[in-house]
């Protein structure tokens, strides 16, 4: 059983408009049998933070193309993308490069 994980989840570049305009969210993920990875985190965001129109943020199990992900200030493409295992106190930032909603 993995312990709860505390994260800073941030949105920028207009992605915050999908989350009531709030850029920074302090998040605590509950205990679950598997360790938390970005794939699980996205599902959790979809169920807990995303207010409407999930298709503007997600596509399949990943983010919509055009939304960038940074894990602790680095490109998630260098960190294993969806498979990155989240650590306590990580910061995950989503930046939209899409024009408008």
């Amino acid at each position: 059983m993995a312990a709860p994980v505390s994260l800073q989840v941030e949105f920028g570049g207009g992605a915050e408009f999908l989350f009531d305009g709030v850029k920074k969210h302090q998040v605590t993920l509950p205990c679950q049998p598997e360790p938390w990875d970005i794939r699980n985190l996205l599902q959790w965001i979809k169920q807990n933070l995303l207010k409407e129109r999930p298709e503007l943020f997600m596509q399949g199990e990943s983010v919509r193309p055009g939304i960038l992900v940074l894990i602790n200030e680095a490109d998630w493409e260098l960190m294993g993308e969806l498979d990155y295992k989240l650590q306590d106190q990580d910061t995950v930032l989503f930046i939209s490069t899409l024009h408008g909603g």
Binding site: G14, F17, D75, I95, H99, G100, G101
Partner: peptide, 15 residues
Amino acid sequence: FYNHFFDVPTVIAPP
């Protein structure tokens, strides 16, 4: 990435 790393301020207009 440039804007994020080097603190370039933006004012994003709604769509």
